[in-house]
Design a binder for these strands. Structure first.
Length: 461
RNA sequence: UCCGGUGUAGCUCAGCAGGUAGAGCAGGUGGCUGUUAACCACCGGGUCGGGGGUUCGAGUCCCUCCGCCGGAGCCA
């Protein structure tokens, strides 16, 4: 007998099958049978099971099946007499694998996303989180698929790093030292030479520097893995642990980098839109704005590209009053970015050429000596979804910028060596995977697009 | 971390001139029905986020801590 996923039952009408899943609701008919809605996670839709009183355990077990119970059902797929589903399963045997009593937190009613976050171990059993999980998975595969088809090598960069500054924010310390008895140097500071790695180490905030070294050997590489930022960020767009996609390409300049970012985003969005119509449709119906139209528009229209200098001019000419004044040399604020992408252009915007003062040391300096070949891809609602740059491949300029940034170049000898031996122009970017999922699904809080979110005060489960 | 809001039954919420708490859903019982967030009746269910204070009396006022939500900063 076939063990079926509920989503494929429709093509087995008339056949005897086995399905296994969790009961979403039970409705009893005094006509002598019960309806069980069983969901096995294979799709958004549940399968309606008809359990007749002639079943041996009808009184003893089936009538006591609560929301959340796990069952195995053997039965025949038949056309439904009801209106809301085409087929249903006429049960010949219902086995309760795991019961669920009245304390089961999920009920047949709407729950707030905040409440569901507090029961992250059970929230995957809801329509919304089941859909998000399937879309997330599909999107991850779409990303790998995109890079594979475009000749990229999938690279695993280290999670533990000794770089004390990768230019991307506060880091989580990794140590096996006993915090109660920290070894001290004669000067009184913590003696990390006695730590596991004989030096201070942290969780990575980016795999970029390592990825660069492989790009300068294999041509096109990308990383896709967990990333950690110890920033005390309390927003709907930040996590302490998130997944980042970082392609790095030798012989790419900034324009090629931007073109890749645009094609990549469009391809991945199109893939989940056509590949997950049911889940995407459900999530879109829950969002407070037209997700499908927005995505379709983005897939079809070219991204706007403009320089930081032009962006500043547009913002100044807009006549719009901003909380933070716009001035060349100052970073663009979120309100400025959102104005550009949501109101001025109404589509994704790629801003390039930021002043070097507030950009990372590894970004290539432009001929004007004032700006760098950086780019931010801004999308409506989310803001910055991608940050990238052409990298500084010229040894002397790179060293100079590292010194300006106050970095100890001795610790980056391995990185600098790539510029000393066979250096090449190259570029890359970082994409926040969860932000992309947010953007695609319309989910408002980034904590709801990752199974077990880590953020300040929260590392449960 | 900053600004604003908020925290009441298992869940979603109401209560507010300070006078010892209420609805819907969930659960139990009964009725009814190829039902579909089923429906009808009845029943059980609360240290009103934690701590402190003002008051004869605090869910309601004040202080403080914590969580949550929105916005900001940092960024992906």
């Amino acid at each position: 007998m076939n063990l079926l996923s509920a989503s494929s039952a429709a093509s087995f009408v008339g056949q005897q099958v086995l399905i296994q899943g969790w009961v979403r609701t039970r409705r009893d008919s005094k006509g002598g049978f019960s309806f069980l809605e069983v969901n096995d996670g294979s799709a958004l839709a549940s399968l309606q099971v008809i359990a007749d009183q002639k079943l041996a355990n009808y009184e003893s077990e089936i009538l006591k099946i609560g929301v959340g119970a796990c069952v195995t059902v053997r039965g025949t797929v038949v056309e439904s007499k009801g209106q809301k589903q085409a087929i249903e399963l006429s049960a010949e045997e219902v086995t309760v694998l795991g019961s669920a009593d009245a304390t089961y937190p999920l009920q047949k009613k709407g729950h707030s996303l905040e409440f569901l976050r507090s029961i992250a171990h059970l929230r995957a059993r809801t329509n919304t989180f089941g859909a998000v999980a399937r879309v997330r998975s599909a999107m991850a595969f779409a990303i790998h698929d995109y890079f594979r088809k475009n000749g990229f090598v999938y690279l695993h960069t280290p999670i533990i790093t000794a770089s004390d500054c990768e230019g991307a924010g506060a880091m989580f310390r990794v140590s096996t030292l006993d915090p109660e008895k920290l070894p001290r140097t004669p000067q009184g500071s913590v003696d990390f030479s006695q730590d596991f790695f004989s030096r201070a180490t942290s969780l990575t905030v980016s795999g970029q520097l390592e990825a660069e070294t492989y790009a300068l050997a294999l041509g096109k590489v990308y990383t896709f893995g967990p990333t950690f930022r110890a920033e005390n960020s309390n927003t709907s767009r930040h996590l302490a642990e998130f997944w980042m996609v970082e392609p790095e390409m030798a012989f790419f300049d900034l324009d090629m980098n931007a073109a890749l970012a645009e094609d990549f985003l469009k391809t991945v969005l199109r893939t989940v839109l056509v590949g997950c119509p049911e889940d995407m449709g459900f999530l879109a119906s829950r969002a407070d704005y037209p997700v499908h139209e927005t995505l379709q528009h983005i897939i079809e229209s070219p991204f706007e590209r403009l320089s930081y200098t032009d962006a500043v001019a547009i913002l100044q000419k807009s006549g719009k009053k901003f909380d933070y004044p716009v001035a060349w040399g100052q970073p663009l604020q979120t309100e400025h970015e959102r104005f550009l992408t949501e109101q001025e252009f109404k589509r994704p915007v790629i801003v390039t050429g930021y002043p070097k003062e507030f950009t990372a040391f590894y970004m290539r300096l432009n001929e004007d000596g004032k700006t760098v070949r950086a780019m931010d891809v801004l999308v409506p609602r989310i803001g910055e979804i991608i940050g990238g740059s052409q990298r500084e491949e010229r040894y002397d300029r790179l060293v100079a910028r590292m010194q300006e940034a106050g970095l100890n170049t001795a610790e980056y000898e391995w990185y600098l060596a790539t510029r000393r031996y066979g250096s090449a122009p190259h570029a890359g970017f970082g994409l926040g995977f969860e932000r992309l999922i947010q953007f695609a699904t319309g989910m408002e809080n980034i904590r709801d697009v990752i199974p077990f979110p880590r953020y300040p005060q929260h590392a449960e489960f």
